[in-house]
């Protein structure tokens, strides 16, 4: 009887995954909410594991940290790392040099995403696990550094006491949370910001290009990109 039940559940899962993957983002989230009410969080976790990370990132990007997406409670550390890896693909107009305001928006979005992920971790263990996974992966660690470009440690924050003056949703707040959950990651951030100053534009462009390295592996596309926009005379 158990096997039969599992087979039915697997069928149901595949159907749900297909259904959710085809939907527009806002609707997909509502559907996942409904499924969670019906079948519980574990089932939703399975669905999310089968969804492409692009879809999950799109759902997370609809909100900010003050009102996070419902799926951010359920995400596992591996899923979060996958989401951070492909999140740079959502950025627009990297080649446009006239868009300096855009880069601050990108940085702000990254700060927002990191904050909402860590706030929803709730327990120190879970936050620690998330940060451990992030620090193991090179690309997502670079993503974690992005909010801290042009930021400096205040002396107060080297203490292990929560500071009531720190505003929620700022880089200070994020640093405090990281230091509480995983001090060695905070140490890495401190070393990163203490080293030579880096231009935000260059950092974002590098991160974007590296995200594409893993995303398109087609060599023909690369050669096309090299010579497609060159004029012929």
């Amino acid at each position: 009887m158990g096997n039969e039940y599992n087979a039915v559940a697997g069928d149901r899962l595949l159907k749900d995954v297909e259904q959710v993957a085809d939907m527009p983002v806002a609707l997909a989230e509502k559907t996942i909410d409904a499924i969670a009410h019906k079948r519980g969080d574990e089932f939703v976790k399975d669905i999310l594991a089968h969804l492409p990370p692009v879809k999950i990132a799109a759902m997370l990007r609809q909100y900010d940290f003050s009102c996070p997406s419902i799926i951010s409670w359920i995400l596992t550390p591996t899923m979060i790392v996958n989401v951070l890896k492909i999140d740079p693909l959502f950025w627009k107009n990297i080649y446009d040099s006239n868009q300096s305001g855009n880069f601050y928006k990108i940085q702000n979005d990254a700060l927002d995403l990191m904050t909402s992920i860590l706030i929803n971790g709730k327990s120190r263990d879970k936050q620690g696990a998330i940060l451990k996974h992030i620090s193991k992966d090179n690309l997502s660690l670079l993503y974690l550094f992005l909010p801290f470009i042009g930021w400096q440690i205040k002396k107060k924050q080297t203490l292990m006491i929560e500071d009531p003056d720190v505003e929620l949703g700022t880089a200070d707040h994020l640093y405090e949370m990281i230091q509480w959950a995983a001090p060695y990651v905070a140490q890495q951030i401190a070393e990163f910001t203490g080293s030579a100053p880096i231009s935000l534009l260059n950092y974002i462009t590098d991160l974007w290009l590296e995200a594409f390295e893993g995303f398109d592996t087609d060599p023909e596309c690369k050669t096309l990109e090299m010579n497609m926009f060159l004029p012929v005379y």
């Binding site: 950025w91 627009k92 080649y95 398109d216 596309c221 096309l224 990109e225 497609m228 926009f229």
Partner: peptide, 9 residues
């Protein structure tokens, strides 16, 4: 794809 990468996303 290449065009979208350059001008949109």
């Amino acid at each position: 794809f290449v065009f979208a990468k350059r001008y949109y996303n």
